[in-house]
Design a binder for these strands. Structure first.
Lengths: 335, 335
DNA sequence: CTGAAAGCGCTAACAC
DNA sequence: GTGTTAGCGCTTTCAG
């Protein structure tokens, strides 16, 4: 920078002004400086600028994983929004490991990011309270279980997602439903389904609730195998609610192998609306979670936090999920 | 830091030594300093450290998109490897936009990252030559088309992936194959298929090559619809090669709707081995691309580059793909 | 083993 | 409009 200044016959300060596009520089001076920059191939040192300004133009995003299409879509959207404002994305994953989460939080908050977005995995909640004391804007998103009330949270009404799935089945006329869910992580979604049936005085019996740990197609496959005898019991189950589309994919695979037709013999409803849901066989009825909208609102709060250089006031934004009816659900067969 | 030093009755230097775990500090002094740190809640400013050391403990990763499971898996693996060494991940996406790519490259290289990993999209290649002049370790990965020979490149033998798919079909006895590919991006994969058939003196006619832009299930669906008349022509096509599993998913959906049985009437082979391939209907035969291994080797070169504070010597590492036979491919029906 | 001094490259105040 | 003066918070010499 000093070299550029000398070559252009000005001071570093003027070079700085030119680089940052300040309007205080006369056109001639600007031209001279720009020429010098080009000749010397000068490029400003962002770290030095950060030290000086106290701002890094970087925000940290802590997510459980990126392999899950739900999160990768959120991350993609956030990255896009940040880029629009010239911000960068420092990405960290916790993989459901509380220790990792804590470490990630610690490093990122040492003034190396301007703000922090944290997507919720239930075990990270605890570590967060000390964080709020820190002078760093923090926004939480995708917080399914017990969103803290000390920070701004943008999440989805997961209970309602379950409720909508349940009501969809009820409206089709289903009375006997099995549940295959990644418990306890998705307990809120299951509660929603139960509520929908309870409204009509129907109880979902505990022995029709099966767990699919990890919420993968594989876990859904295994859970469906375990569930099979119950599904075919005397009082026939006419529908299956899965807490995730991924689980539904595995469940439907079992049904195909076992000759259970979807939706003729049994309906299937998932949650999420992942890209593959539309191309499943049959296309999967699901409850879409507004991930991109969540990303937008969370980022908006981030900007607000950055503007005030502290977290936005505690708040809870609950986004509304929406049923996407497809071919995997239909009225129960009459018998 | 000065406060901590004063409180512990030492200088900043000693505090620094304690923080960085240097062994030059006497146990008593160390204890005093640590107490002061705890009492004051001191946490080192990483930006200042970076300015001083010239190292940010951050590496940049430029990737076309993260929504595609191929890349998200690579990113996830890279992030894990970085975390092991205490490095952070600055993620940028290009979305196939050359301008964005150039901007991303420019910002990231201004000393704000210690090294740069770039996953290949064909239009980014050009921007990269100026970069190599920069004193920044750069490693390229997933470079399907024309890997530059001026930088270290870790990629997959995509031609061989196509070749293996083709040979798999040949070994099953298929002679007449249609190709549905995201061209021109995947032209190398198609060339591989052609080579496999050419070895047996069989030419894949151009009018059996269909393009599925974007390599999504949707694009595969549409391409398959266009291809249908040809597939049912006089000389029957007994197999379809798709340049990507995602395309195959859409193609198989069309076949189901049209009553074409897979693999009895027609075999389908994809490339990639995305998670859904195993749960497709039927499970998809594919050629697995060693993404995680690619991530590992690329990261290894990154470390080497950082150690020498410049890119590793130009090199080309070609990883070997592998056929994963599943139910979507079988010998052609005799007629 | 500890301390004092100099600087990393840039920006924010002020003067001029 | 442009130049001058101080730092931002840390690390790195180099003496002691």
């Amino acid at each position: 920078m000093a070299d550029v200044a000398q070559r252009a016959g000005v001071t570093k300060q003027t070079v700085s002004n030119v680089v940052r596009g300040r309007t205080v520089v006369s056109p001639e001076t600007r031209a001279r400086v720009e020429a010098a920059i080009a000749e010397l191939g000068y490029t400003p040192n962002l770290v030095a600028r950060s030290l000086s300004t106290g701002t890094t133009m970087t925000i940290g995003f802590i997510v459980p994983t990126i392999a899950n299409p739900f999160y990768s879509e959120v991350v993609e959207e956030v990255e896009m929004l940040l880029e629009e404002r010239g911000y960068h994305l420092l990405l960290a994953t916790t993989r459901g490991d509380g220790d990792r989460a804590r470490r990630q939080l610690a490093t990122l908050s040492n003034r190396s990011v301007d703000a922090l977005l944290v997507a919720g995995d239930f075990d990270i909640g605890e570590q967060l309270s000390p964080q709020s004391e820190l002078e760093l804007p923090v926004v939480l998103c995708a917080w399914e279980i017990d969103p803290p009330d000390t920070l701004p949270v943008v999440t989805i009404d997961y209970e309602k997602a379950g409720y909508l799935a349940g009501r969809h089945l009820r409206e089709l006329g289903h009375r006997q439903v099995a549940v295959i869910a990644d418990l306890p992580a998705h307990r809120v979604r299951v509660a929603g389904v139960r509520r929908a049936f309870a409204e009509d005085g129907i109880t979902v019996p505990d022995d029709l609730v099966f767990t699919a740990p990890g919420a993968t197609p594989e876990s859904g496959y295994e859970a469906a195998l375990r569930a099979l005898p119950q599904l075919r019991a005397a009082e026939p189950v006419t529908a299956v609610f899965t807490s995730t589309d991924a689980i539904a994919l595995g469940v439907m695979e079992v049904f195909r192998h076992q000759g259970l037709r979807v939706p003729e013999d049994i309906s299937v409803v998932g949650i999420d609306d992942i890209p593959q849901a539309a191309h499943a066989h049959p296309p999967l009825t699901t409850v879409a979670l507004p991930k991109r909208q969540m990303a937008r609102e969370a980022t908006e709060l981030l900007w607000r936090g950055i503007a005030n250089s502290r977290p936005a006031a505690p708040s809870l934004t609950l986004l509304r999920p929406e049923v996407v009816p497809r071919a995997s659900s239909a009225p129960p067969a009459v018998h």
